[in-house]
Amino acid sequence: MTREQKKLLDELRAVDFTLVETVLYLDAYENCEEALAYYHKQHARREMLAKEYERLYGPLTAAGNVSRTSWDWTKEPFPWEYDAN
């Protein structure tokens, strides 16, 4: 994995982590306006980063195979490999 790919992947993981935390918080505190606004802000950023990642480095989900000519979903490395992190 190149330095650039790792940087983008780490950014995506970080924003996804903020979403995991915010979703759990909103489950319990649904009336918190600040949390809901933060959720929408982070979600927009997540969508942007995920789209960019899939365009450059291949699908994050099986539905994200951007290429019309190659099946990239099963390309290595898989997430548990040393080189994938």
Binding site: L9, L12, R13, F17, A62, A63, W73, P79, W80
Partner: peptide, 9 residues
């Protein structure tokens, strides 16, 4: 839906 990345490296 599976996402092809670990939650934390």
């Amino acid at each position: 839906i599976y996402e092809k990345k670990l939650q934390y490296p």
